[in-house]
Design a protein around this nucleic acid. Structure first.
Ligand SMILES: [Mn+2]
Ligand SMILES: [Mn+2]
Ligand SMILES: [Zn+2]
Ligand SMILES: [Zn+2]
Lengths: 166, 166
DNA sequence: ATTGAATATGAGACTAAATCTCAATTATAA
DNA sequence: TTATAATTGAGATTTAGTCTCATATTCAAT
């Protein structure tokens, strides 16, 4: 399985205009930092700018490299530390796509999607289905389980790869 | 989060008597091996016996250790290699419970369940919901996606941990 | 039985991702 | 200023898992 980490955005998981969200989400992050007596440093800002400015699924090391090329130098340790903070305040999610390491993605508050992962070509399709979400909530309810988050990954062959019989 | 890897079996994901299944599933494995011109060696047999004899979620290293204590010595490499084979023929599934490494579990052919994972105490609850499964199939259908397998993990606080407000 | 080819194993080297350490730096408040 | 807390980066360390390769085993064909 290749890992090109391509991402298809499905109807139902629409792209949000980056204009409004980027700055307001950055504010959410800053508030989160202030709340914990943490500072918005040059390095942290570079990391969030890079992440909020881009799109799709990415690896931690990718951010290190992109920053190295484009703007300021930020150490791997700081990138990981900043990702940890972004996870904590729910502006970033971690995802395991079946390979070795973790991928991350920028999440817009209140939005959520799950993933179809092609094990042949690495294509990742995002989808959202409210009925499915509701059923999950019902299941949690039945078990008196207080969900914080979930991850549904469906592995298989995308439409393109399914044509060619294996 | 502790990692005691306790497992609660929910109604709807009932335990199957080990009597009948264990031997017949072992036969499935042997047939699978023969089919690929692989041999049922002393070591491979020790690994499957250990796995099919036990229950719940376990780590690879756990199998190495259990075998070291109880019966034959099998190298880590061979345990990993045998797990790979068991995954391939679908008698074992790999699962990521949020910690560092992977867990595995023995799966009975045709059965399937998903997991509620308590991030507080590590308790893992298994559940199965046919309606949910059907909806997933429908989604795959919509995307012309041929599913091979999926993994739904719901993280949060179990009934016990949810009582004590964090 | 002997041989030869294919298959399997184990010890330990190796890898990759992520975390940790700690000395040096920077921010903030008194 | 000075003290305190927060932050950083370089590189060491950890961990889970994979890989290598010399040796051993299996099995079918003589
Ligand atoms: Mn996504
Ligand atoms: Mn399970
Ligand atoms: Zn594909
Ligand atoms: Zn719990």
């Amino acid at each position: 399985m290749r890992r090109p980490a391509q991402t298809s955005r499905a109807a139902g998981a629409p792209a949000r205009g980056a204009e409004q969200s980027e700055s307001s989400e950055k504010k959410l992050f800053v508030d989160f930092l202030l709340d914990k007596n943490l500072k918005l440093t040059r390095q942290r800002e570079a990391v969030v700018d890079e992440i909020f400015g881009g799109s799709g699924h990415f690896e931690a090391e990718e951010i290190v490299q992109r920053l190295k090329l484009n703007r300021s130098r930020v150490s791997r340790a700081t990138v990981y530390r900043t990702l940890e903070l972004l996870l904590e305040c729910k502006l970033v999610e971690r995802l395991e796509l079946g390979g070795t390491g973790s991928y991350y993605e920028h999440v817009h508050p209140g939005e959520h999607h799950d993933h179809l992962i092609c094990t042949q070509c690495g294509n990742v399709i995002e989808f959202h289905n409210e009925k499915l979400e509701n059923m999950q909530a019902e299941i949690c309810n039945n078990f008196d389980f207080q969900e914080t988050h979930h991850s549904l990954r469906i592995f298989g062959l995308c439409s393109k790869c399914g044509q060619i019989p294996q």
